[in-house]
Design a protein around this nucleic acid. Structure first.
Lengths: 186, 186
DNA sequence: GTCTATAGTGGGATAGAC
DNA sequence: GTCTATCCCACTATAGAC
């Protein structure tokens, strides 16, 4: 792990707790055991840290979705794969996920545009899977937007909850979450 | 509407867009068409605005939950009531909800403790309803924590999504969301 | 690669005139 | 009740010594 990666990792933990705007470069330096000025030998700016965290992760979601789309699976199987994609990323990168969810709006213009585009594409791909599932009768004919939102909001905030509950076994989590989201609780 | 209420309302919109820490007192004043110093004739501090937004809303959730608990309803009916409570609050107070979800950690000590206590009590009451539903066989016997989290995370982020989609009719929203969350999509 | 020192900006908040 | 002027502090970032 390079010094730069250590800094990005340390920063992501602080961002998760207080948000990007409330964390100072001095806070990050202190958590690294160094002075703020020294950080600038490794990073260009505080913005760069945010950009790395958010855009790298957004690209990971995009790439994961693209792999799912070309599979020769049913819509329902694809939705299960999407749920598993989110759970895997949550388990491995919960700090960066916090930045992606809460601090993307503090990206600077160019990065912001890239991020918003990736997020829109991701949601549109998910929406198409849901609509296809309704068309072939695999999914209940309810408003696709309500289904998309219900699933995505649960998956997007899983990072808030996963760590608190003593690290459930990932496979149990996948099984139960898929069941609750697809088949309900009644 | 008093001047103070106008200020709190204006601030809540800005907090929703950028978060509490990224919004300055000067930003709030500008959005009100006045100078920052003038705000202090109506409010004590920037912190006070956050405190009003978050704690008033938390009390509303607490009071709504308490009314549901004393009803003579089945666990499943109570869960439907909780979903409706969240939807009603979302429709009427989506800006304050953003602060409650994202900026509660910037409350000062005493307010922070009150908030965390209210949130824990709320979740515990919801958990008990779910467990009772499982006990009497109205709800599938899955990990209560997974059910609690799936429903709450959807309800808590509804505010992000409700406004984008051209203000669906509230009753349609209640019907479809209850269906998706309780009976799944398959 | 890390430090001290500091530049330059913008933050929350107050004093006092009108 | 709003303004101008200002205080004091914290912020990001840079310069230059070691």
């Amino acid at each position: 792990m390079t010094r730069k990666e250590e800094i990005v990792g340390t920063a992501s933990q602080l961002f998760k707790e207080k948000g990007y705007s409330a964390v100072s470069v001095r806070d990050i330096a202190q958590a690294m055991g160094m002075k703020a000025a020294s950080l600038y030998n490794h990073i260009e700016s505080k913005q760069e840290i945010l950009s790395i965290l958010v855009l790298d992760l957004a690209r990971e979601f995009t790439s994961g979705m693209n792999k799912i789309l070309i599979l020769d699976n049913s819509p329902l199987q694809k939705i299960e794969k999407v749920i598993e994609l989110h759970i895997d990323i949550t388990v491995n990168q919960s700090e960066a996920l916090a930045a992606l969810n809460n601090d993307w709006m503090h990206l600077e213009q160019e990065d912001l545009e890239d991020f918003v585009q990736m997020r829109e594409d991701y949601e549109e791909n998910f929406r198409k899977i849901i609509k296809e599932g309704i068309r072939v009768g695999q999914i209940q004919p309810r408003h696709p937007e309500v289904i998309l939102f219900s699933i995505l909001s649960t998956l997007r905030t899983l990072y808030l909850w996963y760590q608190k509950r003593g690290k459930l076994d990932v496979n149990v989590l996948k099984k139960d979450m898929v069941a609750v989201m697809l088949r309900g609780i009644v």
